[in-house]
Design a protein around this nucleic acid. Structure first.
Length: 502
RNA sequence: GAUCCCGUAGCUCAGGUGGUAGAGCAUUUGACUUUUAAUCAAAGGGCCGCAGGUUCGAGUCCUGCCGGGAUCACCA
């Protein structure tokens, strides 16, 4: 028990528990035969033929009780929704007496027939009922009202975000609509699996504990393996392992992986988050763009049954094809200047002119990145593939086939947020070694986010990787977009929170 | 990490210039055999986030700390 002292209501519930037991009732029985969920009853009931549901059993959590002497109405809530239950003293012997020992929050099973009340609500008339779990703590108790226009008004909603995140189970019980967000999340992930599996690509698992971390620029979590007495890092990306599998002969592999990044938290970042990465041999980034577009289009239609959605007041149209724009063209469009080929100092001068603040020590790459995120990115509301990045920004991407100084890379932006990142994967071992060595120099110069040099990965590239297209998608952000949620914490069941200190 | 705002009953919230802690819902008792934010009558329930300080007196003023939210910085 968290608290040593019980409040009066907790004490009372424990007393009720004992009363039930003394009456020979097990408040925690082992199973219950449930024939229907709440939603099934509501959809299957026919006023012309109520006999169809003359004997059903439902089970769920008591969410409201309205006692009227010798009759009692209650709502129980199961996974599918709520159903009203009607208890009539004459129809129930000892259970009606036990009703006074039940509270909101207890789980019960009810068997009886379905009917429509005078007030018009489809309800289960109880012939028998049983306690399935006695709750000994109070539940936050919102009340719902339906106004004349049919809108639901919730009173005293359990709205404290901190409590909602820390005690997600309460949030799920009481704010039942948030359940939908997580059901959609599960649908999205399972659709992605189906989409890839049907194409014959293999879902794989690669190490979360890695002796060297790589595949992205980010600070890792460090942990320690006792038997080996070595430090290990929790993965920041699975890219380097998935490419090893392509080297090994698989021609399409994907992983839906938890990545861990030791960085700040806010409504777009949780220290652990879910990424999808996929690598397909003999393909390039153009092909991957088509595939990404098709996948995202399908997901939007899966969730919304149409290809235009509204997010935070903005209409977003996923009609194919998505806009495709070269990075430096976007700079011309939104900054009004040609930034291609400019030196670091020239870029810095421009930041002053256009009012973008940068770290005075920032590299040319970082300055470009900063200008992009301040001046360009917020304008990319409609789905936009930004393509062809400077080589320095992308140490794992293949040099552009026709444009000097660029790589074949795209990122998909929607509502100003980066959803996907992909490239024609670099498979020239000489170039790959040179790029990672350059990263090591940057790292040695003090940028602890630059990539580490993974000799085994280089070895695998030296063995030879076929031409390959690779893609990463931030699943949490995609789910946010598709469910309309504004904070990553609302699409993760248990977001990271600071521990509460006494 | 920085700035601003917030923390009072199980939940949602009130508590001008400091003066014995409030409401609605929830809970308890009673009435009520088709109610629905059920209703009516009565009752119980609080380390006012934590710790200091100012004061005769602090929920209220000051300082520090803990937790949260928003914005910014880093990142996906």
């Amino acid at each position: 028990m968290e608290e040593l002292t019980l409040n009066d209501q907790e004490q009372r519930r424990l007393e009720e528990l004992e009363i039930l037991e003394k009456a020979g009732i097990n408040p925690y029985p082992y199973s219950y035969d449930k024939t229907h969920n709440a939603n099934a009853i509501l959809t299957e009931f026919l006023d012309e033929n109520p006999g169809l549901l003359s004997n059903v059993s439902v089970a769920g959590r008591l969410m409201s009780i309205r006692k009227m002497g010798k009759a009692t109405f209650a709502h129980i809530q199961d996974e599918s929704g709520k159903i009203q239950v009607y208890f009539k003293k004459d129809d129930l012997n000892e259970f009606y007496e036990q009703l006074k020992n039940l509270d909101i929050g207890d789980i019960i099973g009810v068997q009886g027939y379905v009917f429509r009340t005078r007030m018009g609500e489809i309800s289960v008339h109880a012939k028998d009922a049983i306690v399935l779990c006695k709750s000994v703590k109070m539940l936050p108790t919102p009340k719902e009202e339906t106004d004349e226009t049919g809108n639901k008004i919730v009173h005293d909603a359990f709205a404290d975000k901190e409590q909602r995140y820390r005690r997600r189970y309460l949030d799920l019980i009481v704010n039942s609509h948030i359940r939908d967000t997580f059901i959609k999340r599960a649908k999205i992930i399972s659709y992605i699996r189906k989409y890839y599996d049907e194409k014959g690509w293999l879902e794989v698992e690669t190490p979360i504990l890695q002796p060297l971390y790589g595949g992205a620029t980010a600070r890792p979590f460090t942990t320690h393996h006792n038997a080996l007495d070595i430090d290990l890092y929790m993965r920041i990306a699975d890219e380097l392992y998935l490419k090893r599998l392509i080297v090994g002969g698989f021609e399409g592999v994907y992983e839906i992986s938890k990545n861990f990044r030791n960085e700040g938290m806010d409504k777009m970042h949780n220290p652990e988050y879910t990424a999808l990465e996929i690598y397909v041999a003999y393909k390039d980034y153009n092909w991957m763009m088509d595939m990404t577009e098709d996948l995202v289009w399908n997901l939007v239609n899966l969730i919304h049954n149409k290809s235009e959605i509204e997010y935070n007041g903005a209409k977003i149209n996923f009609g194919k094809p998505f806009r495709r724009a070269k990075m430096f063209d976007l700079f011309r469009e939104y900054v009004g200047k040609e930034l291609k080929g400019l030196s670091r100092d020239e870029l810095q001068k421009i930041t002053g002119e256009i009012g973008v603040e940068i770290d005075p020590k920032a590299s040319a790459m970082k300055i470009l990145d900063e200008i992009f995120s301040v001046k360009v990115q917020p304008n990319l509301i409609q789905p936009t593939f930004v393509i062809d990045y400077p080589v320095e920004m992308s140490p794992l991407a293949k040099k552009h086939r026709s444009e000097e100084g660029l790589v074949e890379r795209f990122e998909l932006f929607i509502y100003g947020s980066e959803i996907a990142n992909a490239f024609s994967e670099l498979n020239d071992p000489r170039d790959q070694r040179a790029r990672l060595e350059e990263q090591s120099r940057i790292r040695a110069a003090g940028d602890d986010e630059a990539m580490t040099l993974d000799e085994d990965f280089l070895y695998s590239i030296e063995i030879g990787m076929p031409p390959t297209a690779g893609l990463g998608i931030g699943i949490d952000r995609l789910v946010m977009l598709l469910t309309g949620e504004k904070s990553i914490r609302d699409v993760i069941f248990f977001p990271q929170m600071k521990p509460e200190k006494q």
